[in-house]
């Protein structure tokens, strides 16, 4: 069964899109991650133009994170002060990111830029997960000395505008929180991700927030950052395909139910090795696409002309 995507301007197989959504949904249910960072590359592999894939994925993230954010808010897991300060950066970053996408598309180098950034991100995320879970399986524990904070932590502690965040029980600089939000906002627009793979480690390891508050606050900021990026992409790039987004969301919701049930049968480290392997495979395919000679050296410049 085919469906014509109004904004992408092409027919796609409904079951292929639902299936991709479901696959990423299973993974997110299994691992408790958002999965946006896998969905955009998979959509590109399926032939969706990269800019439409990223912007529609962001639109899908709005749907996927809304109910979780609401639930965590009700349970008191959201540090609203942290979330709002983070969002100042997130909204600025998302708006700047959508403009960056527009400029890059205009010169015909959006695709290659986003793929390079993806390769870097996926290598870091996949590599880190792989090393960590192999160490965990071997029974090694990372020796962290709480009395000796890292150079980066000491740098953050010296930044001005230090503030207490009572819900998280941490004290840090507003500049750091806004800056982090800005980076994640730019990446959200450029790659079509929620950015949990940056926000979560930063909140837990760098700021020392309790995991559950980090999850709640991350979901809270993701809802608003993705809402802003969706609107900015619609304005700057006309790349948000809401039909594609809803199809993906339906697939991923169904997949997540199965994923969450499967996850009880595996050990955390085993799961993380599998996820790391998947992430590294997607990364390898992107590298392959970047270095192999394209079929045709002359291509359409996205965002110009067309119908």
């Amino acid at each position: 069964m085919e469906i014509y995507l109004p904004i992408a301007g092409m027919p796609v197989n409904v079951f292929l899109i639902l299936g991709l959504g479901a696959l990423v949904g299973v993974l997110s249910g299994l691992f408790g991650v958002g999965g946006g960072f896998l969905l955009t590359p998979l959509l590109i592999f399926a032939g969706i133009p990269p800019a439409v894939a990223a912007a529609s994925d962001t639109n899908q993230i709005v749907a996927a994170s809304a109910s979780g954010a609401l639930a965590h808010k009700r349970l008191g897991n959201v540090d609203v002060k942290m979330g709002i300060i983070y969002l100042i950066g997130g909204v600025l970053g998302g708006t700047a990111g959508a403009q960056l996408v527009r400029v890059l598309r205009g010169v015909g180098n959006y695709d290659v830029t986003m793929k390079i950034v993806y390769v870097i991100m996926l290598t870091l995320v996949g590599g880190f997960m792989l090393i960590e879970s192999i160490n965990a399986l071997r029974g090694k524990k990372k020796e962290a000395d709480p009395n000796k904070p890292s150079a980066f932590k000491r740098f953050v502690q010296r930044l001005p505008l230090q503030t207490d965040f009572k819900v998280s029980g941490v004290r840090t600089s507003i500049i750091f929180v806004v800056g982090l939000g800005f980076v994640v906002g730019v990446l959200a627009a450029l790659l079509g991700v929620g950015g949990g793979f940056i926000t979560m480690p930063a909140m837990i390891y760098l700021l020392g927030m309790p995991t559950i508050v980090a999850i709640g606050t991350d979901l809270f900021q993701i809802v608003f950052t993705s809402m802003n990026v969706t609107i900015q992409q619609a304005i700057a790039n006309h790349t948000v395909d809401v039909v594609l987004a809803i199809l993906l969301f339906c697939g991923s919701t169904i997949g997540a139910q199965f994923g969450a049930r499967f996850s009880k049968r595996f050990r955390g480290e085993q799961l993380r090795i599998i996820l790391a392997a998947i992430v590294l495979c997607v990364m390898a395919k992107l590298v392959f696409d970047l270095v192999t000679t394209p079929e045709s050296l002359i291509t359409l410049t996205a965002g110009k002309g067309g119908h």
């Binding site: 639109n59 749907a63 109910s67 809402m227 948000v240 809803i246």
Partner: peptide, 23 residues
Amino acid sequence: PVAYGLLAVAIALTTGLVIANLF
């Protein structure tokens, strides 16, 4: 495009909440 963006967000929020509750 502004109205379209808002509509896309509204559709996503509604679908997200309705389907999550349905499940």
